[in-house]
Design a protein around this nucleic acid. Structure first.
Lengths: 344, 344
DNA sequence: TTGTAAGCGTTATCAG
DNA sequence: CTGATAACGCTTACAA
């Protein structure tokens, strides 16, 4: 609607001229590199303010070879994990003078789509990228990309690998299952997330393993896909199975659906069935009943990943300053000791 | 850990040399601008693939004066509205060859912090910005910024102004209140969002106005701040007030807290009290009872805002292709006719 | 402490 | 249809 203003924005040259110095001096003042007589600096800054001058990022990065741009690769940004991660990433980036650009790939995107998104980030000049989607890190195509631009993944690639960065999915499942077992439940059923996600697979493995360690044969997995709808379906399935007293659901959102299905089927939580989920979203405390859940420190994780990434980009080490990323069990009202069998 | 590869990435010159053409031809092939003999183009592309060449964004935008970068200004990205908006923005941007960079300002940020974020986006080269936070658009500082970089706001600045873009907050409140009134409730109480947000203020105004139009004196506003905790507090307050039969809560998240408080106080929804909220988040259908709510089409809004912004940047008009952004009432189980007064 | 000169990798302009 | 050549606005040497 409004016409684009024709007068181009002021450049370093304009500032230099008005301040009666060379462009180099202007650059020095603005970057803080090199020494400038205080008085000169003041004079330059005055002109900068007067003109409303700001460095042209493209020109600066063309000349310096640095963009201070970080890329983030996530699935549809409205997922809880994506946005929670994003908060941590943005903070850490901003604190270090980096900016962030996001590329979202659709859920269940093909490897193709993923590479495309990665390339888009590289093309924009991202000096590093935080990967928040499930990808096969060992494919040649991925290796090639990670080779030229440092990348860090916010989840562990395999149960065995010890990525100091990822939330320990094994620990999450163990925390949940052991809580239930320690309460006196004889076994724990598992409602999975979408197995497209490694997290989901890892939790299943750890759930199985924890049960096995106690000499319990794992019951069949009830499949879910993270959505409340799938939790609801899982709840109906579970309600139809006699004898179930404890369920580990792979996300809070699914737990909401599960709770409703159980309620509709006349099962009360936690009296008939105990439920523990994962994430600790803001609403978890306001489910009925309030959810016992394993909190994932996504924000800390995003921060940690970013800090490490920046360290790698700048060629230093980033030990010591890394935030804690251990999952923690939050006990609320959806879990209890199993009812005495007398009632049945 | 891994050393940065010393061999710099290939440039247009490298491609040109290998393909036996000028850099200009390479540029033409890659941009699709200007005509090139098909055979030449093929030869260039072959070299491009072979070398893994990709244009250097900074250089390109320095030369062309275009960045194809859009900025987004939101509060803490983990808010539902922010991320839902973001999804729409990203889609529309990607579909038009633009990339997106986000600047998050803390909730309740000062005008200062906001301008800083805006400037950061400008410095990065954003050609336009979508504003998703409450700001005074008429301050000189803001005027100045919007003057040099096209900006579009995803909410209506005042109840009177008819921004074709914003979700109609007035309509939201009217939909909610009239639904309740039509059900037979004598008045409707209102739990506000955070009044730092214009949306919240506008909904209050419209709630008041709708009541007044029917000759009803609005009861006092129960203050909230969007969080489930504040909804819970509001619920306790309401439970202590005799005679309340209908409540309009300004967000689904608050509704969850409200529901819990009401439940704890022994009031049943919707039999004793009807509740309608706003947003229609994924979990709204899984509250107990399922929430009747006014859906805000955030994604469509983000898309529409972006489309208009791009149109403005490119100096064309964007009529016709704008998505619908009307709010819609979703009736579920948290509302019903008031119980006959006989029971009291 | 300050200035000069030479690029950085593209695209635009103008010839051919 | 293709190719020189000149910007684009800044930073990094190197000189003064």
């Amino acid at each position: 609607m409004s016409p684009r203003q024709p007068d181009k924005s002021p450049s370093q040259v304009d500032v230099a001229r008005l301040a009666g110095v060379s462009t180099q001096t202007v650059s020095r003042v603005l970057s803080g590199q090199g020494s400038v007589r205080p008085e000169t600096a003041r004079r330059v800054m005055a002109v900068v303010d007067q003109l409303g001058y700001r460095v042209h990022a493209a020109a600066a990065s063309l000349a310096s070879g640095r963009t201070r741009l970080l890329g983030v690769l996530v699935v549809s940004t409205d997922r809880y994990s994506s946005s929670a991660l994003g908060v941590g990433i943005e903070h850490a980036a901003a604190a270090n003078g980096y900016t962030v650009t996001t590329a979202a790939v659709p859920d269940h995107a093909s490897g193709e789509a993923f590479f495309e998104a990665f390339d888009r980030l590289e093309r924009q000049g991202a000096e590093g990228v935080v990967i928040g989607v499930p990808v096969e890190l060992n494919s040649p195509a991925m290796r090639m990309r990670m080779d030229r631009t440092p990348s860090i993944r916010s989840e562990r690639a395999s149960l065995a690998e010890d990525a100091p960065l990822a939330v320990d999915q094994h620990a999450i499942a163990r925390l949940a299952v052991e809580h239930l077992l320690d309460l006196g439940h004889e076994t724990v059923w598992y409602v999975s997330g979408d197995d497209y996600w490694l997290e989901s697979q890892h939790r299943r493995e750890a759930w199985e393993q924890t049960l096995l360690e106690r000499g319990i044969t794992p019951p069949p997995v009830i499949p879910g896909d993270w959505t409340p709808e799938s939790g609801y379906r899982a709840g109906r399935t579970i309600a139809a199975i006699p004898g179930v007293t404890a369920v580990f659901v792979s996300s809070d959102e699914m737990a909401f659906g599960l709770l409703r299905a159980l309620h509709e089927a006349g099962r009360t939580v936690p009296d008939d069935i105990s439920v523990v989920s994962v994430d600790d979203i803001a609403l978890a405390a306001y489910a009925s009943p309030a959810l016992t859940t394993v909190r994932q420190p996504f924000e800390a994780l995003g921060r940690a990943a970013t800090l490490r990434l920046i360290a790698e980009i700048e060629g230093r080490d980033a030990v010591g300053d890394l935030p804690e990323t251990e999952p923690t069990l939050i006990v609320r009202s959806s879990t209890a000791r199993p009812q005495a069998a007398t009632s049945s």
